[in-house]
Design a protein around this nucleic acid. Structure first.
Lengths: 235, 235
DNA sequence: GCCGCACTGTCGAGTACGCGACACTCAAGC
DNA sequence: GCTTGAGTGTCGCGTACTCGACAGTGCGGC
């Protein structure tokens, strides 16, 4: 499989001029986090900001009854908790590691200091917030208007863009949670996609076989969200 | 009917210290806009920012096929296009006037100048963006998980909070668009709510009869979103 | 007064998905 | 090897909502 774009380091960090990057560099720590790791729950103070290099973090809206549904995702083109660069903040979402993650982490206070000194960083934080908002409002529409199959395909593509293999470790149960549907529905859709030759799956693992085919079935939201990031962050 | 909170002028403007408010005041123009007026479409440059005094603006995500669905609303507790205070921006949503609107309007450039001089305004812009984001991600979950009836009730309550009467001018067709469902579904739900004595409606008009009853049927999202605004903007 | 239209009411068929139950199977651990 | 449990397959029923069609009805304009 040919990937659409090669994976770089984190796009936000790469976009910073060298001088500004130097404000951050001494405080960035490389971390590796396992799948399923909980980073934030709603109300948690944001004490660290994560810049993924490879892998995906899910942002999920948590309901009173414990149901959680994905509102957006954070990959190498973005950062988790970036709004805390401006001022101390609480997380609004649950943030969990969706695929094994390599990321650079920095303390929120250190980042804030850099933010005060770097106009380029301020601009980036601002644009990133806008892109994330665009991601969220597209998901609003998507959840209301599009079929589970279309959303399933969009999800696979978005995830595939952000990791370095064609194999995604992922149970149907987990995906059902993300999409906010029943597991049995996911099973049926996965079956149908496999029959069409677009994916192959076995216990807890999905292989992407035909990206173009998935794109044909995915809703427009996939492209729209990509474009937001492109336009606002120039990745 | 007793309203939960008395309507003030725009909360954001009120929250500014007098000195900072003075930066804006010379450039604020009072406008009255009729229902249905289109303020922005996706991609439009944001040249004016609106601070509602009374009435509601809907932000809608527009799909390729022309379908549009509400992602959030702007009332006297917020502002439309506020992110343009930071830097020139394009609208991501369609913004239309949902109920007859009185608002203060200011040119984006004037606002940006004030933003550069006023730390209080910068803080407010920032918090407002966060609240709007919280609104959006709650809507993501709501659209995926909650019934049309619950969302209908939430919508009525949110609208009611932001206007000064118990009567809302509103066709079922319009509401169906906002919620992203069929008109016939809205008709059925409206009928059921009227039978329960919670609302009364006639051609293009809905009267709120029993707020508490509506709250009982509305989903938790109503309260969650209110709390976001409360916590972040102290309204 | 009448016309035309926007808004609402209703009906029926079709479907996507929820929800619960249960059986099967692979993988890891002992 | 066997056990255990997590993950998957499947079935069936119920229901919320879609989709299209058409018939009423109040309101504004002429």
């Amino acid at each position: 499989m040919q990937r659409p774009v090669p994976l770089a380091q984190n796009s936000l960090l790469d976009a910073l001029p060298t001088g500004d990057h130097a404000f951050l560099a001494p405080h960035l720590i490389q971390v590796e986090l396992e799948r399923g790791r909980l980073l934030y729950d709603p109300g948690d103070a944001i004490d660290h900001v994560y810049f993924p290099h490879d892998g995906v973090i899910s942002l999920m809206t948590l309901m009173e009854n414990g149901a959680a549904i994905e509102s957006s995702t954070i990959g190498p083109e973005g950062a988790l908790g970036l709004m805390a660069a401006v001022a101390p903040r609480q997380s609004l979402s649950r943030a969990i590691v969706q695929t094994p993650l390599r990321a650079a982490r920095i303390g929120a206070e250190r980042l804030h200091e850099a933010w005060e000194r770097s106009p380029a960083l301020r601009d980036l934080v601002d644009r990133h917030g806008e892109a994330l908002y665009g991601h969220a409002i597209q998901s609003v529409a998507c959840n209301a208007l599009h079929s589970v199959e279309a959303r399933f395909c969009r999800w696979l593509l978005t995830c595939h863009d952000r990791i370095s293999t064609d194999t995604i470790a992922l149970t149907q149960e987990f995906l059902a949670d993300m999409l906010g549907v029943q597991r049995t529905t996911v099973t049926a859709v996965a079956r149908s996609l496999q029959d069409k030759g677009l994916i192959r799956y076995r216990r807890g693992v999905v292989d992407i076989m035909d990206r173009a085919g998935l794109q044909a079935l995915a809703c427009e939201c996939y492209g729209v969200i990509r474009n937001h990031y492109h336009r606002l962050l120039g990745t």
